[in-house]
């Protein structure tokens, strides 16, 4: 369609502006981090013995491990449950129930993370405390995070399942395959790249989650050797210390933000290509 140049430029401007927000973030978080990276070197952040920023010890390793473990645990719980729940919504639930189910899941996906954290704090932590004190622990983080991520996994999986061409399902039905047979042998394998892409995306979300995790994991900087020990994640560290950090301490927090940013960007790009592969086939 013919366009006046002004209109076109205005639209193009907003598009480039939106796209450049990411560059701005990378630039500013990077710019804030660079001085300290130059001063102590990248390896210091992984090799230092602990997180004593005031004494020049910037070991992020325990918190990175904490973040990874909590996210991994949550995803390992949420993925199988999420796939089964999505299969239920798509193929097992009778129509009116399926609609209600979908609406409920959408609602649950919108619950603020701070509410999950609050529930973890007043219900889950005391409950774990009775089994193995102190209660605020990696396990609590994993459970709360799994509950948070679960609806998102269900939604992305359901979305991938709806994109399975219905002709495949109908021809399988005509061959007399059982419902579970059709799901297990046809629907799930076809939808798998989409499902995986969703799972990778959600693990990025789990890794980046701050509030819910911070409120239940106890926030002790240590490498945990059991599920019941408290840990601190990278995100929680930023949220907890940003308020009073100054100087190199503050910069070190930006470095951990940069680290988070790099990990999540990698995950999103991975998810993107997983999805693209599906369409490429």
């Amino acid at each position: 369609m013919r366009t006046s140049p002004t209109f076109q430029y205005n639209l193009q401007f907003t598009a480039l502006l939106s796209a450049s927000v990411l560059l701005f973030i990378l630039y500013f978080v990077g710019r804030e981090s660079i001085p300290l990276i130059n001063e102590v070197g990248i390896s210091a952040f992984f090799a230092d013995n602990g997180w004593y920023p005031l004494e020049g010890q910037y070991g992020l390793a325990p918190m990175l491990v904490g973040s990874l473990l909590v996210a991994l645990g949550a995803i390992m719980i949420a993925t199988p449950l999420g796939i089964i729940a999505a299969v239920f919504g798509q193929y097992y639930a009778p129509l009116p129930l399926a609609k209600i189910y979908q609406a409920t899941i959408e609602l649950l996906a919108g619950i603020p993370s701070v509410i999950f954290g609050f529930w973890g704090l007043i219900v889950l932590v005391p409950w774990i405390n009775r089994i193995a004190p102190p209660g605020a622990s990696m396990l609590a983080g994993i459970i709360v995070l799994a509950m948070m991520v679960l609806p998102l996994v269900i939604l992305t999986t359901a979305n991938a399942l709806t994109r399975v061409p219905p002709t495949y399902l109908r021809s399988a039905q005509a061959l007399g395959l059982s419902r579970w047979g059709i799901i297990y042998r046809i629907a799930l394998p076809i939808a798998m790249p989409g499902i995986l892409s969703g799972v990778v995306l959600q693990s990025g979300r789990a890794l980046g989650e701050t509030m819910a995790v911070m409120m239940v994991t106890g926030n002790v900087v240590q490498l945990p050797d059991s599920l019941f020990q408290p840990i601190r994640t990278l995100t929680a560290n930023i949220a907890l210390e940003m308020a009073y950090a100054v100087g190199d301490h503050r910069i070190a927090l930006f470095v951990s933000g940069l680290l988070l940013l790099i990990i999540t960007i990698t995950l999103v790009v991975m998810a993107h290509y997983l999805k693209a592969r599906r369409y490429g086939q």
């Binding site: 973030i25 978080v29 980046g208 989650e209 949220a239 960007i265």
Partner: peptide
């Protein structure tokens, strides 16, 4: 990618 950036990083 932007929609996958952790909210705490938006905070920073």
């Amino acid at each position: 990618v932007l929609s996958g950036v952790p909210s705490i990083v938006f905070g920073l």
